[in-house]
Design a binder for these strands. Structure first.
Lengths: 195, 195
DNA sequence: CGTCACATTGATGCCTCTCAAAGCTTGTGG
DNA sequence: CCACAAGCTTTGAGAGGCATCAATGTGACG
């Protein structure tokens, strides 16, 4: 799933290994690139004028970070590893040059961003749903293909995090949905019962 | 705040007035453009194989929608107006041509998307905070500049929606924060009291 | 001056979080 | 091959907090 050393355009990233607690960049630093997190975890936090930290995002393996760095002169938050991490660095200058040389690569990059926007908006909407039962059901509907079933990726605990519930709440919601015969489960998949 | 008839590149949008309940596009329709909502509201819903509607996003005035339509052959959800709406249409072909003619315009478009991704991720993180008090406080911190104060934009009811609380919960949280002298308020602004 | 939407506060109930414990699966090492 | 550990899965009990319903105050606008 997680692809390392993936090129953007013809720009090959540079690997960096960071110990837990390292600083990748700081608010105000001149932007030097964007990043792909292969292993570990990175907290993006903004420090407010009064010194309080505000969490912006916690990056998980497989995600890019600081895409906007291409377009601004300096970073707008701190990036701190929360555990030992492997990061791939895409130098800003190289990317800009590659994109200007080959606009089609920029087109692909833009496409990725557009899909991310869609995806994030959908996740945000999902979180509007208060009821655990309904939120889980909608999340499953989004994941199920035509077949009406979903091969569980990762663990249910991860799904719980993804949709913003405690794992207990998720397990209870799933048990409830199964009792109501709205879904059926096998160890590795969940299927919607069409009504 | 809401700018109508804003060009993207040199592409001028076409105005469309839609009555409440109109269909802007349907899942599976060939993509013909992206849109800017000036007035009204639009629900983006995906219809699952079993006929259930899953809300993807509700577009509010001032937002673009269907940015990803540039990159895919057909729409992935239905777009239905929830009230009388004014929409500006940016034809896909014209945009693609403008972008290929002038890559700098594409660069700006990409920049907008990158910032949207940042913004959405931040909002998603904000929603992780369960406590109304803390969520409101963080939201204010993000909005306050160096001065430590925020000129209220729109109404507090809108802020409540934006951060995912009922307006009652927001009012109570604000009252609570003011009692604790963490913030101070004037009719048109809210200021953080540095500790 | 009346209407309408926003702002504010009160009372109540439900739902999810939290803490806790036990079953289950997987992998590891002796 | 077994025993043990670690992490996921599952269910239980209790409490706190936010949504909900309700009522009143307040400001803008015609």
């Amino acid at each position: 799933m997680i692809v390392s050393e993936q090129k953007i355009g013809d720009v090959a990233p540079v690997r960096r290994d960071l110990a837990a607690g390292s600083t990748l960049f700081r608010q105000g630093d001149a932007t030097f690139g964007l990043f792909y997190l292969e292993t570990g975890g990175i907290r993006l936090v903004r420090v407010t004028p009064d010194g309080t930290e505000v969490a912006m995002h916690t990056v998980r393996p497989g995600e890019f970070l600081a895409e906007a760095s291409l377009f601004v002169p300096c970073y707008h938050c701190d990036a701190i590893t929360v555990r030992d991490s492997v990061v791939w660095v895409y130098p800003k200058n190289a990317l800009i040059e590659a994109f200007s040389r080959n606009p089609q690569e920029l087109w692909q990059f833009t496409s990725r961003l557009a899909h991310q926007v869609q995806n994030l908006r959908t996740r945000l909407t999902l979180r509007q749903i208060r009821s655990a039962r309904e939120r889980v059901l909608q999340a499953l509907r989004l994941r199920c293909g035509k077949r009406g079933s979903w091969e569980i990726e990762g663990t249910l605990k991860h799904l719980a995090q993804e949709i913003g519930l405690t794992h207990e709440a998720l397990y209870r919601a799933l048990a409830d949905l199964e009792r109501s015969k709205v879904i059926s489960r096998t160890p590795n998949s969940i299927a919607l019962q069409e009504q």
